[in-house]
């Protein structure tokens, strides 16, 4: 179970958000650009350090004190694929796997599953610096999932991708969330994407605070603020 209370003061915004997430569940953080959603996610991941509050994952205290990044059992995906350009696709995917783990039959099978499902076969030996943006997103997703993290954090990972690919990646993520059983928090300002990714629960962040939380039906049924109504309206 993840429990977090993030307090982070920025020049233009003060973020103060609390959230809880049961193991295996998914949670969407919804709101306009610049509302503070990504800051919450970055603080949980450890990319940024909160000014105050706490982050606890099961029995592991992530903050405070700030747990070093390499000891955090989570995966973090952003709109920048963040592939290591000096390595091949396969080296990127196996980057976080120790040699001992990589040698096990179970891990080999898991990597093969990822490879097949994400259609990475033709790219497998290619330099990561030479693949397309859409391919890079698939590789970064495989790299994150290769370690089977118990918590997955997604910060608008599908921005700028075509609808077909977004649909495929969402289906993959939902499939693996059920297969592996990881918890997932996703950030997006497209309700359609977030609803498919995290159908169970959503928190609306506005001006750094929680404006509303509940199910998507509740959100669509009675949006708490005019700006939220505007965000949910079809284009």
């Amino acid at each position: 179970m993840l429990k977090a209370h993030i307090i982070k003061k920025r020049r233009e915004l003060s973020v103060d958000v609390s959230l809880e997430l049961e193991r295996g569940q998914s949670l969407g953080l919804f709101g306009a650009s610049g509302a503070g959603k990504s800051t919450v996610l970055a603080c949980i991941a450890g990319i940024e350090e909160p000014d105050d509050g706490f982050v606890k994952l099961d029995h592991l205290q992530l903050f405070p004190p700030s747990l070093p990044l390499h000891r955090r059992p989570l995966g973090y995906l952003t709109q920048e694929p963040g592939l290591f350009p000096h390595l091949s696709v396969s080296e990127n995917i196996n980057f976080g796997i120790t040699k001992e783990t990589a040698a096990t039959a179970e891990q080999k099978q898991w990597i093969k599953t990822l490879r097949d499902r994400l259609q990475l076969d033709p790219l497998w030996s290619a330099p990561a610096s030479l693949i397309s943006g859409g391919q890079a997103r698939r590789v970064s997703l495989a790299r994150m999932l290769a370690r089977k993290p118990p918590l997955v954090l997604l910060d608008e990972p599908f921005a700028g991708l075509d609808r077909q690919l977004v649909r495929e990646l969402i289906d993959d993520l939902v499939f693996w969330a059920q297969t592996i059983g990881f918890s997932m928090i996703a950030v997006d300002h497209h309700a359609e994407v977030l609803k498919r990714l995290c159908p169970q629960r959503v928190i609306v962040v506005e001006q750094g605070t929680v404006a509303q939380q509940g199910t998507w039906d509740e959100l669509y049924g009675s949006p708490a603020t005019p700006s939220l109504r505007s965000l949910l309206a079809p284009i």
Binding site: A45, I47, L69, H70, L74, T78, G82, F84, G96, R147
Partner: peptide, 11 residues
């Protein structure tokens, strides 16, 4: 960010 990604991958 690349270095932080590497750390989050357990390095």
């Amino acid at each position: 960010m690349l270095q932080k990604q590497a750390a989050l991958l357990g390095l």
